[in-house]
């Protein structure tokens, strides 16, 4: 293939503009939506409601609904309470893509990175302890790990990017 740039003939350029490229029809993006909101704790409940209602519209099965709601609640609370802790809440973007087989949610924020710039471990807090030592926290990341099929975290520039995946072909974990 020649690397020399040649101007595209005018007629051909017009044709390109007129005909919708065929690739659009075959690689149509998966159904989904994007929500932009602030990382304030008070934004979490309304954003959860909005996201769940949009997922309902996309056909998220009833048995998956509560699992997805819990994971989204935990991740959004983490952003509000930790990523934007001690600073004015910055922007958060939630992007969801869903097929009958798979739901993928990507959360982006510009807050502090996760400790060590990596995903926290998903171990369940030990409950086999005396009453006074019972854990009151640490359940969040355990639930996120436990209820998702895959989890990816990346810190780039000033942004946290957390990708949550759910395999919708099987019923959710019964607990």
């Amino acid at each position: 293939m020649s690397l020399i740039w040649r101007p595209v003939p005018l007629a051909k350029r017009r044709a390109r503009r007129m005909d919708p490229p065929q690739t659009v029809a075959t690689s149509r993006p998966f159904p989904g939506f994007t929500l932009h909101f602030s990382g304030a704790a008070t934004d979490v409940p309304p954003v959860l409601r909005q996201a769940l209602s949009k997922l309902d519209t996309l056909g998220l099965a009833a048995d998956w609904r509560s699992t997805v709601e819990l994971v989204l609640a935990e991740t959004l609370n983490n952003i509000a309470e930790h990523a934007y802790a001690g600073q004015p809440p910055g922007p958060v973007t939630l992007t969801a893509r869903m097929t009958p087989e798979r739901l993928c949610v990507i959360l982006r924020d510009q807050g502090c990175p996760l400790p060590g710039q990596k995903l926290p471990e998903g171990r369940a807090p030990n409950t086999d302890v005396p009453c006074a030592s019972l854990p009151e926290g640490g359940f969040g990341w355990f639930l996120i790990h436990d209820l998702t099929t895959a989890l990816h975290y990346r810190r780039t520039d000033q942004e946290n990017r957390l990708q949550l995946e759910f395999d919708l072909t099987a019923p959710p974990k019964p607990g």
Binding site: L70, A73, E74, N77, C131, A132, L134, P135, E136, G137, F139, G140, L143
Partner: peptide, 13 residues
């Protein structure tokens, strides 16, 4: 959620 669960556990403690 996990915060609510923590609050119920705290009620016991």
């Amino acid at each position: 959620d996990s915060s609510g669960l923590g609050a119920i556990v705290a009620s016991k403690k």
